[in-house]
């Protein structure tokens, strides 16, 4: 495994290389709840094919930052851009996949795995439209990739933590997103399943044209992959970054394989499979 290298994200030079296009740009972002300043003067950019780990103690503003990035909160000052477009005007939400915290839903909620996965498709361009055969096939492929076809008709609340995680990952991947945002995806899940999940995420980072922003409190896991030194610190927030060039060079997209093959590749690798097949 090549040494992770740290990139200085504080300098904002004009970007020439298309491979390093900005996916998320934060400029002097500030936010406060009532009188309490949570985030102040935060400038940071997530570039294409970065894996960014965001670490911070409770109350450091991780969730606040995430909610601002996805447009649920507005920054008090400063600006946020997604794929080069100001967040307030951003429309291409299908380019972003989102994996929530495991306990963000009620376990009694009457929804099947399939219904949850299909909901990844329900965005602006599906308004007033019925679901098509092609949509059903997308769901089948996402379930196949995550090895959860057998669970399709189970209620989401009946699954184990690891299975639920894969369901939410499948939902996030159904649109073939370019940016995957994960909000503490490993909370409340046993270490073995966590390792399998992280292996899967790492694989996608190394072999797919995908950018990652993961909020976590698990220092070991983050540092193991992203290095010991945060690329940027702001207040109590720490950003760890690793850029991936492992498989493809800039401009070549055909190497990245589709969702369909993900499972085969993973099974071939056999690494971390014990927890994967649990």
């Amino acid at each position: 495994m090549p040494e992770p290298y740290v990139i200085d994200r504080e300098q904002t030079k004009p970007i020439v290389n298309t491979c390093h296009a900005d996916i998320i740009t934060l400029k002097d972002v500030a936010f406060s709840y009532q009188s309490q300043q949570v985030i102040d003067k935060l400038s940071f950019s997530v570039q294409q094919r970065d894996f960014v780990g965001l670490i911070g103690s409770n109350g450091a503003g991780k969730t606040t930052l995430l909610r601002m990035i996805v447009g649920l909160l507005k920054p008090a000052s400063g600006s946020i851009s997604l794929f080069g477009t100001p967040a307030s005007q951003f429309k291409d939400w299908h380019r972003i996949g989102y994996v929530p915290q495991k306990n963000s839903f009620n376990p009694l909620f009457p929804a099947t795995v399939r219904e949850v996965i299909m909901s990844g498709l329900y965005g602006r361009n599906k308004l007033f439209r019925r679901l098509t055969k092609a949509d059903q096939i997308k769901a089948d492929e996402a379930m196949h990739a995550m090895n959860i076809e057998d669970l399709a008709l189970k209620k989401i609340g009946q699954l184990s933590g690891g299975q639920q995680q894969r369901v939410f990952l499948a939902r996030a991947l159904i649109n073939n997103p370019e940016l995957l945002i994960l909000d503490e995806p490993t909370v409340g899940i046993d270490t073995e399943t966590q390792a399998g999940f992280f292996h899967l995420i790492k694989h996608m980072h190394q072999h797919h044209r995908m950018t990652f922003l993961m909020v976590s409190h698990d220092m070991d896991m983050i540092q193991g992959y992203l290095g010991d030194k945060p690329a940027r610190e702001c207040g109590k927030l720490k950003f760890y970054v690793r850029h991936s060039h492992d498989l493809e060079d800039c401009g070549e997209t055909n190497i990245s394989h589709s969702l369909k093959n993900l499972r085969q590749v993973l099974e071939r690798e056999k690494e971390g499979v014990t927890s994967w097949t649990s």
């Binding site: 929530p100 963000s104 839903f105 929804a111 299909m118 939902r171």
Partner: peptide, 21 residues
């Protein structure tokens, strides 16, 4: 007209926002 969007909104409001609803 909106049953699928309402489903997502009810199940996971943040995900609904990320989907651009």
């Amino acid at each position: 007209l909106h049953v699928k969007e309402l489903f997502l909104l009810t199940f996971d409001e943040e995900a609904a926002a990320v989907n651009g609803l």
